[in-house]
Measured scan of single mutants.
Amino acid sequence: HFTSQQLQELEATFQRNRYPDMSTREEIAVWTNLTEARVRVWFKNRRAKWR
């Protein structure tokens, strides 16, 4: 589960860029205190939901 702060950060990034690269995902991981893998999976799932 994600905190509302984490989701806000993830959503804001998603609005700007639906396909963040590795370095962007790592930055998000640092800001949100999540692993890069969790961030990558979140984006994958979010893109699926967005379609």
Rank of each mutant, 00 (worst) to 15 (best):
residue 9 E to W: 15
residue 12 A to D: 09
residue 36 E to A: 06
residue 9 E to L: 15
residue 19 Y to R: 05
residue 30 V to I: 14
residue 33 N to P: 01
residue 24 T to L: 11
residue 32 T to K: 01
residue 41 V to F: 12
residue 22 M to L: 14
residue 30 V to L: 14
residue 21 D to H: 05
residue 14 F to K: 02
residue 3 T to Q: 04
residue 33 N to H: 10
residue 28 I to E: 01
residue 42 W to C: 03
residue 40 R to Q: 06
residue 1 H to S: 12
residue 14 F to D: 02
residue 31 W to S: 15
residue 37 A to V: 12
residue 11 E to C: 07
residue 2 F to E: 03
residue 27 E to D: 08
residue 44 K to Q: 12
residue 1 H to C: 12
residue 43 F to E: 00
residue 11 E to K: 03
residue 5 Q to K: 12
residue 36 E to T: 05
residue 4 S to T: 12
residue 13 T to V: 15
residue 16 R to S: 09
residue 31 W to L: 15
residue 4 S to M: 12
residue 31 W to M: 15
residue 12 A to N: 10
residue 20 P to W: 04
residue 20 P to C: 05
residue 37 A to K: 13
residue 51 R to N: 09
residue 4 S to F: 13
residue 16 R to G: 07
residue 4 S to R: 14
residue 37 A to G: 08
residue 15 Q to F: 07
residue 48 A to Q: 10
residue 35 T to F: 03
residue 43 F to M: 03
residue 49 K to N: 08
residue 41 V to E: 14
residue 16 R to E: 09
residue 23 S to K: 15
residue 18 R to D: 03
residue 31 W to E: 12
residue 16 R to K: 13
residue 29 A to R: 02
residue 43 F to N: 00
residue 26 E to H: 12
residue 29 A to H: 01
residue 34 L to T: 13
residue 47 R to D: 01
residue 20 P to Y: 03
residue 7 L to I: 11
residue 39 V to W: 03
residue 14 F to C: 04
residue 15 Q to P: 04
residue 45 N to V: 11
residue 4 S to P: 14
residue 46 R to C: 03
residue 49 K to P: 05
residue 40 R to M: 06
residue 14 F to Y: 06
residue 22 M to N: 06
residue 49 K to D: 07
residue 42 W to H: 00
residue 33 N to R: 07
residue 1 H to F: 11
residue 35 T to P: 07
residue 48 A to I: 11
residue 2 F to R: 02
residue 20 P to Q: 02
residue 23 S to Q: 14
residue 30 V to R: 15
residue 15 Q to Y: 07
residue 37 A to E: 14
residue 14 F to G: 01
residue 47 R to G: 01
residue 43 F to W: 03
residue 42 W to V: 00
residue 18 R to A: 09
residue 51 R to P: 07
residue 28 I to F: 01
residue 48 A to S: 08
residue 9 E to Y: 15
residue 18 R to V: 05
residue 2 F to W: 07
residue 31 W to R: 15
residue 20 P to V: 02
residue 46 R to T: 03
residue 11 E to M: 04
residue 33 N to G: 15
residue 7 L to M: 08
residue 48 A to L: 09
residue 31 W to F: 14
residue 32 T to P: 02
residue 1 H to R: 12
residue 47 R to E: 02
residue 5 Q to M: 12
residue 36 E to G: 03
residue 51 R to M: 11
residue 9 E to A: 14
residue 16 R to I: 12
residue 37 A to S: 11
residue 22 M to F: 14
residue 23 S to Y: 10
residue 14 F to H: 03
residue 15 Q to S: 10
residue 17 N to S: 06
residue 6 Q to V: 07
residue 23 S to N: 11
residue 16 R to T: 10
residue 30 V to H: 11
residue 49 K to H: 09
residue 39 V to A: 02
residue 44 K to V: 11
residue 43 F to G: 00
residue 38 R to Y: 10
residue 50 W to H: 07
residue 41 V to A: 14
residue 21 D to M: 05
residue 12 A to Y: 10
residue 6 Q to N: 04
residue 39 V to S: 00
residue 25 R to F: 07
